[in-house]
Amino acid sequence: MSDIKVGHIVGRASYNCDILFRVVNIDGDLVELHGEDMRIVADAPVSDLVAITEKDRKKRAKKLRQKEENCYQLFRQDRKLTRERNEYEITSGYTKRNTYFELPGKVLHLDGDSLYLKKCTQVYDRLGVPVYGVHLEEKEMPLQVKSLIEMIRPDILVITGHDAYSKSKGDEHEMKAYRNSRHFVDTVKEARKIVPYMDHLVIFAGACQSNFQSLLKAGANFASSPDRINIHALDPVYVVSKVSLTPFMERVGVWDVLKASLTGKQGLGGVETNGALRRGMPNYQDEEE
């Protein structure tokens, strides 16, 4: 398989090509792989790789895009119901519309994968969530997060990228058994030095198979992955968007977050958290009219 090159989409024959990977580096016979849609990183010998045809890739992509769209539509439906309830509450039931405005929670999204960051930013935009995205290698995140928080002053922080758990390197409680969990944990700790309180800065941290317990212990509100499974590239977006678009006087239950995700409770978890959206009156447009 010497025709495998950086940027190619491949599968692993030993795993029946269950996950599509993007080739990011080739070092002799060893190839570094990043999940095309899952936040997993892996190494594999060239001999184990199977080039994925464009036809097969499109077929898989169609199924996945449909799943993503279904998730988006469910999120929008839930958002619509929430807005209708909030409008009734804030206007005391008056029939006049557009009498208030909303300020969603601002997201600072740190991502170890530039392509994933682009995908995530597009979904944030569709959902109406303000976001400042930064592409950083996972090992650089603990060094940069302090200055970024001070510059952006976000309500919500996302710390994600790629990760993987290797049973051969230790049990699931040992940090040495994970590819990037230690970097995510260190980044959460650094962020909590700046903003200690969980409702003043909501944090999502982790990627595929990450050390869930250590991330929560470090101070994350939400994290992956309780059952050490793979999570979808867009899962962090839906988790924190639920927080961003929920009024700060309301609590976001863990189940509220999980039902808005693509992976569910095996891949994501956390603690109940206050929303980050603030409402005000009158609407700016009303004043102009």
Rank of each mutant, 00 (worst) to 15 (best):
I152D: 11
V240G: 07
K193R: 14
I229M: 13
G206A: 05
D155P: 05
M198I: 09
N180K: 08
L157N: 03
L157I: 04
K242Q: 15
I203R: 02
A191P: 05
P226L: 12
V257H: 09
H200G: 04
D186Q: 14
L148H: 07
S166I: 13
V239C: 14
G133I: 07
V257C: 11
L157Y: 04
W255Y: 09
G206K: 04
A205F: 10
V257S: 07
V202G: 06
K139F: 02
L258T: 00
V129Y: 14
Y132I: 13
V145G: 01
V254S: 02
K189T: 14
R182W: 04
P130N: 07
L258G: 02
K189W: 01
I231D: 09
F248V: 04
N211M: 14
V123L: 12
L258V: 09
E172C: 08
A223T: 06
V237W: 06
A177K: 12
L157W: 07
K193L: 13
P142L: 08
P130M: 05
A260L: 02
R182S: 08
V123N: 03
F212V: 01
Q209F: 01
A164Q: 11
H173W: 08
V257T: 09
A223K: 05
F184G: 00
I152T: 12
V185M: 11
T187M: 07
S168W: 13
I229Y: 12
H173R: 10
N180D: 10
R251Q: 10
W255P: 00
I156K: 07
G133K: 05
S166F: 15
G253Q: 08
S244R: 10
S210V: 00
I159S: 01
E150H: 15
H232Q: 14
E140M: 05
H200M: 08
S214T: 08
H232V: 01
Y165Q: 02
K139M: 03
R228S: 02
E172D: 13
Q144E: 10
K139N: 05
H135D: 08
I152G: 02
F204Q: 11
A233G: 00
G253V: 02
S225T: 08
W255T: 10
K259A: 03
A177Q: 10
Q144R: 14
V252D: 10
A177N: 09
Y132C: 12
K259I: 14
K167D: 05
M175G: 12
N180A: 15
Y132G: 00
I231H: 07
